[in-house]
Design a protein around this nucleic acid. Structure first.
Lengths: 195, 195
DNA sequence: GTTTTATCTGAACATATGTTCAGATAGCAT
DNA sequence: ATGCTATCTGAACATATGTTCAGATAAAAC
């Protein structure tokens, strides 16, 4: 039965996810034990199994949640008319969304190999769906002559790799604001696909 | 004493490195046991310790070797005169070098967090040295007006992220040759830094 | 106040881990 | 042939792992 009133346990689930995401990002899935997660949450290892059937499901749930958040946030935006504005919107969205979720991005990127075959397939489908949004933008722009790229599929992957690369160096509180980073990357993206 | 003649043990060292690199790339450092490595090499776990003092040194040796190979291969090229040719040379070199070393690139990128603090610092220094080569090219090009980027440091990291991203999708035997991939990326790089 | 229910503890289980080391093995020089 | 040396085996050690579960705890429902 679902809890209807506030109690300390109502926050244990989210807390486990937060702690696990941070630890997985920091040390990697295989290097983090259930006891470490439990210890950081402030609980014994056995208690974790009230919230996840096993360690693998914990990782999968984190990655699936992240990808669904990404797709939902993307879908919530209304798309501009012309291709150029669409690409700018995608660029700024991608950077802003990923910058404030460094841990989730890192985990979703690095721990694909730690997923079971079935879970991997599920995550890959979600990732593909996101990539397709960018490729659609590029394809349409190429059609109308606004963009020119040698290969839309490769350009898609190249741009996403470049944009996600922000996470390797950006640290909150650095010399650049999110908007400044967005603008810097948009400048390069715009030119990279220019005719 | 160093071996002077051929014997089966002369190839055990390299074999361990090959196997370890492949397994680390496939499953991650923490997820691979010394017994798995030994088993793939065709030897008992204890025998590995004739070639490495411990697991951490094995990983570090692989990463250090890769970074030194990279810097050596880079240094062996003679640099063209003008900035544009230098950037093209760097782009093609980076792609070609990284494409034929997928496992080493993957490990050197993903397992930084598995290194001890001291080993991490060493690898980071080597990586920085490589990045600086690209940044020098960009800086000089910006000076002479051949390139225009918002920030040479960020542009460096953005381009390297984009180029290294090739490894996430390229598979030998695919529809594109190395030269074709080089050209596709060079087209985007050239435009991304164009004035 | 009593029952019910969700949650947590603490110990246990079977297995896996990195590493060590005495002794076996086999190629080398003499 | 004999001694030497590098290498490998196989067992052992101490510890860590994911997971389970009977029983404690405490809040909610009646």
């Amino acid at each position: 039965m679902a809890r209807t009133t506030g109690s300390h346990s109502d926050i244990t689930g989210p807390r486990i996810r937060d702690v696990a995401m941070r630890l997985f990002a920091q040390h990697g899935y295989a290097a983090v034990s259930m006891r470490q997660i439990a210890s950081d949450v402030g609980v014994q290892a056995g208690a974790l199994y009230n919230y996840t059937p096993d360690k693998q499901s914990l990782l999968f749930g984190l990655m699936q949640g992240h990808m669904e958040d990404l797709l939902a946030a993307r879908a919530a935006r209304d798309v501009p008319e012309d291709s150029l504005a669409q690409l700018e919107d995608f660029t700024r969205f991608h950077i802003a969304f990923h910058m404030e979720r460094a841990d989730a991005v890192f985990v979703s990127y690095m721990e694909l190999r730690s997923l079971s075959d079935e879970n991997f397939a599920t995550i890959e489908t979600l990732r593909r769906r996101y990539e397709d949004e960018l490729e659609q933008i590029l394809r349409q722009g190429v059609c109308t002559g606004v963009f020119s790229v040698p290969d839309t599929k490769i350009a898609t992957l190249a741009l996403i790799a470049m944009l996600t690369g922000v996470n390797t160096w950006y640290r909150t509180g650095g010399r650049l604001s999110v908007e400044e980073v967005e603008t810097i990357y948009w400048d390069m993206v715009r030119k990279a696909v220019a005719p």
